[in-house]
């Protein structure tokens, strides 16, 4: 029974109770790629959207106060890229967000793999932690966001720990299902976990990491937005308070790019590690 991740809102990423054989790619990661024959139409669609933006700005149909035009946005981008806004450049924001994301995925991922292997291969451990997993799976991660207001640990690490917790659950459940679904190996005790097991769990782990990343962008931006000076979310909110809506657009485009990049990197890394 191949279960895969679906939920985006919950800690688990919904890696459980998927019907067998329905879809290889989790819902939160979007649809499958369009077949190559239709690429042109897709490019046309995106192109039309951009053209609409350009034309409406040029002809003054849309008030630049309401939606900055492409030129203004490009200028804003240039300013952000070179001088920065409030003395922080786009790259610093981007680097900060990426660092938080990477730390969250890394810490949570490693802990998740260890926990998943332990739970998946040991009956005793499973029976102890299963109920807690069952409950936390249903809690929307973003709902836990205000925890970063409550002081537990150093401030800059709070958001990262939240990201790590999300990642932890998603990965742990994926690895657990992978190990449990594989069944006991003939001739070996079910409690044995070796390097090969870890290796076999890699594809499931990286798929889970991609789901976790998708969920975490939400958490990350929300967290940065409400309580930080640096990071793309923080940049969005600062821009708003200074009525710099072009910066908001730049941030949105940056998020499109960086989330696609992280997803791509995770996929490649997973393929590469899995051989």
């Amino acid at each position: 029974m191949a279960e895969s991740a679906v939920d985006g809102g919950n800690v688990s990423g919904g890696l459980v109770d998927r019907p067998a054989g329905s879809r290889a790619v989790p819902l939160i990661l979007g649809g499958e790629a369009v077949s190559s024959g239709n690429r042109l139409l897709g490019v046309a669609g995106v192109g039309a959207m951009l053209a609409l933006w350009v034309v409406s700005a040029q002809l003054g149909i849309v008030d630049p106060e309401v939606l900055p035009g492409p030129r203004a946005t490009a200028e804003d981008f240039w300013q952000l890229a070179t001088d920065g806004f409030q003395r922080v450049t786009l790259w610093e924001h981007l680097a900060m967000s990426l660092m938080r994301m990477a730390l969250g995925l890394g810490l949570g991922g490693v802990a998740g793999v260890v926990a998943g292997l332990a739970i998946g291969s040991s009956r005793t451990i499973r029976s102890i932690v299963q109920p807690a997993f069952g409950f936390f799976r249903l809690v929307p991660v973003l709902g836990l966001l205000p925890l970063i207001f409550v002081r537990f640990g150093p401030g800059s690490m709070r958001l990262v720990s939240l990201l790590a917790v999300t990642t932890f659950f998603i990965v742990a459940i994926a690895v657990r299902d992978h190990v449990a679904g594989r069944g006991p190996m003939p001739g070996s005790s079910a409690d044995r976990v070796d390097l090969r097991t870890v290796r076999q769990a890699l594809p499931a782990t990286f798929l889970a990491l991609r789901v976790a990343a998708a969920v975490n962008w939400n958490v990350l931006v929300a967290g940065e937005l409400i309580s930080f000076q640096k990071g793309l979310g923080a940049m969005i909110w600062t821009a708003r308070t200074f009525f710099q809506y072009g910066f908001v657009l730049v941030a949105i485009f940056a998020l499109v790019g960086v989330s696609a990049l992280v997803d791509f990197a995770l996929r490649r890394l997973g393929d590469w590690l899995a051989g």
Partner: peptide, 15 residues
């Protein structure tokens, strides 16, 4: 859809 889907909805809130 694929382009805008990954953007956290909250990023749009200022606009």
């Amino acid at each position: 859809i694929e382009l805008f889907r990954p953007v956290p909805p909250l990023a749009f809130i200022p606009l």
